[in-house]
Nucleic acid binder design. Structure first.
Lengths: 245, 245
DNA sequence: TGTTGCATATAGTATGATAAATCGTATACG
DNA sequence: CGTATACGATTTATCATACTATATGCAACA
């Protein structure tokens, strides 16, 4: 692409961002997730370093981070190997992002929402029991943003995400809070999918019902109201097995 | 160990296992989770290296793995800082283990099971829909191990874990499969707690009900049967707010 | 035929030097 | 006096190189 090519020098640093290690992590992570090393063996430290024109330290630290996320494992003499995807830490934001950046998959979207329908109704129920005043304010703020988005005064996707994230946090259970990334990713993906299928106007009433139930400390009401929201999405996906990228 | 000790050198390598980086990761991870750097600043690379008698490479790679798990973040001149625990990747097996190794906490146990009551009933429902013959065999094998444990021919805890894990995997949703670690950890912890409170004999009937419902592809039956199992545990915890370590 | 031992490839560790980024402070300027 | 600019110091980031540990496979040997 630039002068480096003329010398045939292996210097691919422009691919990686300002932070070389971080860039290498991203590059390798994406490559693994798209299955580039399926038949092939994972390259050795020296090969990676040479191919990307960076030092061995950088590649080592990137590979270490991949091990920390469960994508690879390394042993002397045997080399570094890609772990089966069942060992990948799917709730890691990076891993999740790499999964989304590859070819769009309805399966993944369905799996996302199968998870959401377990988590979010229960999170709403917990929120109804344990929320504090500040949480309620945040939830209602999300709702108002959704209404504002109706008139084009806010981004509907951001507003939707803010609402759901607020409920996860209001559950006062740190494990539920972890799903922020998953939910955000799921929503960002589904928007591509459900984009113009139907207006999201009716949805606001459903969301308001959740907020009201939580405010009223109605545990079962919050759960069923939230279940309705996700259930709608899930049906939408199920009814369209085929999809355009 | 050897002559090095005679020189009074700072060599704490005996604390770390065979793999220095891995040992350092463990050491630092535990220290962070127990809050050893709450008021204090996180030590610099050079300090860690000197304190543990290892090279900077080792400490750097360990710290990189910690950042990959969300425990710390590092920037030049500013140093390395411990992230707020809301950024920790709680579903990482290492992080989960460090959390358990510290002082026993009823809160944590409650949070575990609040999560389980969302995940596992839905996993059972999905398993009823999507399981394959091999999954059913694995589930039943877990059940048989529980029965064997009744007569002292197997470890009851391992058997219980095997059963629950089998259902997570039978859901055919990779996100649910991720909870294996959480469930295993939760069970290993609760056993300490519920140990002698009541016999686990009645429990086998409940577990068998789940297996039967899954086999019969009874989606709702599987869900409610599983809900009963976890609900029992949750009540048990709620009824005993105080606990001995 | 089986076992031992050696050569080799690869990740692991050590060391020291340089680069980059940022914070605090001092200094110059308005 | 206040504000902006320049400099210095600290810490991570990167590089380069050497050496160690470990496991694999082959070959010599009993």
């Amino acid at each position: 692409m630039d002068e480096d090519s003329l010398q045939g020098r292996a210097d691919a640093r422009h691919d990686l961002g300002r932070n070389l290690t971080r860039g290498m992590l991203d590059s390798l992570g994406r490559a693994i997730v798209v299955g580039r090393f399926e038949g092939r063996p994972f390259p050795t430290e020296a090969e990676i370093a040479k191919a990307h024109g960076v030092s061995r330290s950088v590649t080592r630290e990137a590979v270490k981070m991949l091990t920390a996320k469960g994508l690879v494992s390394a042993r002397p003499r045997q080399g570094t190997v890609v772990e089966p995807s069942s060992n990948w830490n799917l709730f890691d934001p990076d891993v999740l992002r790499w999964l989304m950046e590859r070819k769009f998959s309805v399966d993944l979207l369905r799996h996302f929402n199968q998870l959401r329908i377990a988590i979010e109704p229960e999170a709403a129920a917990l929120a109804a029991r344990f929320h504090e005043p500040a949480d309620l304010a945040t939830i209602r703020a999300g709702l108002h943003r959704m209404e504002a988005a109706e008139d084009g005064n806010d981004d509907p996707l951001d507003a939707d995400i803010a609402f759901h994230v607020a409920i996860l946090r209001a559950s006062k259970n740190p494990f539920y809070a972890q799903f922020q990334t998953v939910v955000a990713t799921a929503l960002q993906t589904s928007i591509r999918f459900t984009n113009r299928i139907k207006g999201r106007s009716a949805n606001i009433a459903d969301h308001a019902a959740v907020a009201d139930a939580i405010a009223a400390r109605d545990v079962d009401g919050a759960r069923t109201a939230m279940r309705r929201i996700i259930g709608d999405v899930l049906e939408l996906i199920a009814s369209r097995p085929e999809v355009e990228a």
